[in-house]
Amino acid sequence: MKIKYNLDKSTLHVYFIGELDECTASKTREIIDGLISDINGIKKVVFNLSELTFMDSTGIGVFIGRYKKFKSKNIAVFVENPSKTVDKILQISGLYKIMPAV
């Protein structure tokens, strides 16, 4: 799993590249949480999933965990461009209710 990002004013775009499972989850958490604590003034985070080639329920846990962390800092989270299968997982788990699609 690789994470790329860019900052557009107060919006942080985070690009997930690769596979998100139990094996890659802790590194992914660490990188994203590091970005949030290193960059000041973020109001909105957009998770771009167009290059997330695989995700299972461990990924849901990672997303819910980030949502809770960001919420405590008043940062809103959105997702964009999931694959068909990832989209199905996000729907079943109700994740779109807390992280709307953009």
Binding site: I60, K88, I89, S93
Partner: peptide
């Protein structure tokens, strides 16, 4: 506590 979603079996049943 380790951020697990509890959705594993639900996803297996869905797919």
């Amino acid at each position: 506590e380790s951020e697990r979603s509890g959705m594993g079996f639900t996803i297996m049943k869905t797919f």
